[in-house]
Amino acid sequence: MRKKEKVVYREKINWKKEAALLPGYAIVLIWIMFTAAFLFWIIAASLSTSREIFSGNVFKFATGIHFENYVNAWAASNVSVFFGNSLMYAVVTCVCVILISAPAAYVLSRYTFLGRKPMKFSLILAMSIPEVMIIMPIYSLSAQYHIKGRILLMILYIFLRVPFTTTYLLNFFASLSKSYEEAATIDGCTPAKTFWQIMLPLVQPALITVTIFNFLSVWNEFFMALIFASSSDMTPVGVGLLQIVNGMKYTGDYGGLFAAVIIVFLPTFLLYIFLSEKIISGVTGGGVKG
C-alpha cells in the first residue's frame, strides 16, 4: 500500500514538470509529425501506381504493393548507374582525402616550420570561398589537359574535401600527448613510421567522423556534378535525380520517381539512423567554433 502511494507521488511530480513542458512537446511533435507523414507518404507512393497517387489513395494499396517501381527505377531510369557512380566517388574520395589530409594535419599540428601559419590560414579561407570562384579556371584547366569524366569528378571531390578534413583532424592531433613521439624516437622509429603506426591509429574516432561527413558531402553533392559530369554514365545521384524529374513529363511514371527518390535518400538515411549521435556531435565539435 505504502509502495503504491510512493509511485503515485513520483508520477505526480513528473506530470507537473511535464505539463510545464507541454507547449514545448507540442511544437516539436508537430514539426516531427509533419516530417514523418511526409516520409511515410513518399514511401507509400513509391509502392503505388501513378493512378493511385493522382487519386490520393496511396495508403490503401488497392492494387497491391508495387515493388516493380523500384525495379523500373533501378534499371530503366538509370538509377543503378547514378548509384554506382556516387558510391564510387564517395568511397574513393573518403580514402584519398584521408591519405592527403591526415599527414598534413599531423605535421601542421606537431612541427613548427616556415609556411605553417599561412597554410593553416589558407585551409580555413578555402572553406569559406564560394565554389563559383573556382569552377571556371578548373573547367578550362581540365579541358586544356583533357582530364574528364569520372577521374575529373573524383579529383575535384578529393580536393574539395581537403581543407575541411585537414582542419578537422588538426585539432585532434594537437590534443595528443608528445610522450608518444618521444617514446617512439627513443625506440628508433622514424617520424613517418611513428605517424602511420602510432599517431594515426590514435585519432581513429576523428577519422571515422570526418569520413562520415565526407561521404555525406560527396553523396549529396550537386553543383560540381552539374557542371563537370558531361554524360549520364558519369552522373552521380543528385544530378541523376534531376534528370529523372525533368524526364517525368515524357514518362509520367510517378511511382518510379518516388522509388528513385527513396533509393537516393536511403544510403545516407541508413547511415544517419546508425550514426546520428556521432554525426550530431561532429557538427558542433569540429569546424564550428562558438
Binding site: W31, V237, G238, L241, L242, V245, V264, Y272, S276, V283
Partner: peptide
C-alpha cells in the same frame, strides 16, 4: 536527430519530395 535529419539526406531528393508531393 529527427529535426536535423533533412540536413543529412540529398537536398535534390528533399526538393523533389516537396515539389512532387
Amino acid at each position: 536527430a529527427a529535426i536535423y535529419l533533412p540536413n543529412v539526406i540529398s537536398a535534390v531528393a528533399l526538393a523533389t519530395m516537396w515539389i512532387q508531393y
